[in-house]
Amino acid sequence: MPEVKMRTISYSTAINEALHEEMARDEKVFLMGEDVALSAISPATAGLGDRFGHERVRNTPISELGFTGAAVGAAMAGYRPVLDMRRIDFMMLAIDPIANQAAKLRYMLGGQVSIPLVIRAPEGGGSQNGPTHSQCLEAWFIQVPGLRVIVPSDPADAKGLLKSAIREDNPVLFVEYRALYSLEGPVPEGDHTEPIGKAAVKREGSDITLIGIGSQARSCLEAAELLAGEGVDAEVVDPRTINPLDVEGIADSVRKTGRCIVAEEGHKSGGVGAEIAASLQEAAFGALKTPINRVAALDVPVPVHTKLEAIVLPSTEKIVAAAKKVLS
């Protein structure tokens, strides 16, 4: 194996690199969304409009239903559109082309079409943007057969999984965590891809498994450091994709530690954590020494005020507290 050279870049730069590389590699890839053409608007799309032109880096009207449906049509006709939703909250205006059309067309038409579409959906709170600009909605979409759902938590996965998503012949919801945009981390140089459908152990440990989705995988790593200071050896597992969910990959860790916390930024009820907890008790009930505990956003909208927002959203401290409860 040749030595892989690493360098440190941010999560948003990793996304930007993946877009640059895939657009250069395949002329069928094009990017579409509100405010994607001008470099200054988002670091994730910087330089693309200048490099590839405004045909392939295409501003849209504020018309989520229209341009998402158009992307599905272009995908049926042989293109590989990548959509920029700006915020997942705005994507609610485009649920029909995603859930009724993109996800079902191949099945409904008996395999006559494939829909190679990537929907980039930045999301999440912590910036005092309030109830309609802070949500994490990935749990909604694991209920939609036919859709891949990817939730990267660090720069290497953001780059590697976005490149894989663009090469995938199926519709992919690619969730980006706004709180992680400035997070720096090591990313291999060159054509770095990561497999869709494989969980990753982000920190090895033996006492408890902390499973984190997206932004909360990062919080789990911070929680593991704090727990280490108190003599607890926590393992951190990041599912990385939640449809398909790598149940066996996650269960392997739980079989080792016997204890488990699931943390996500979405709301607790009907959340990704609920799905993971249910899957784990099916796959590894005998290995569990204690009940699985969930850390998630409380079941209220995300308020603007800093203090109130912190009450509602999950955090490193809440994960530490939950872990201690499970270990006691």
Binding site: L65, G66, F67, T68, G69, A70, A71, V72, G73, A74, A75, M76, A77, G78, Y79, P81, P97, Q101
Partner: peptide, 10 residues
């Protein structure tokens, strides 16, 4: 209709 627009775009 949006899908038709997308095929037209292609």
């Amino acid at each position: 209709m949006p899908m038709a627009a997308g095929i037209g775009l292609a």
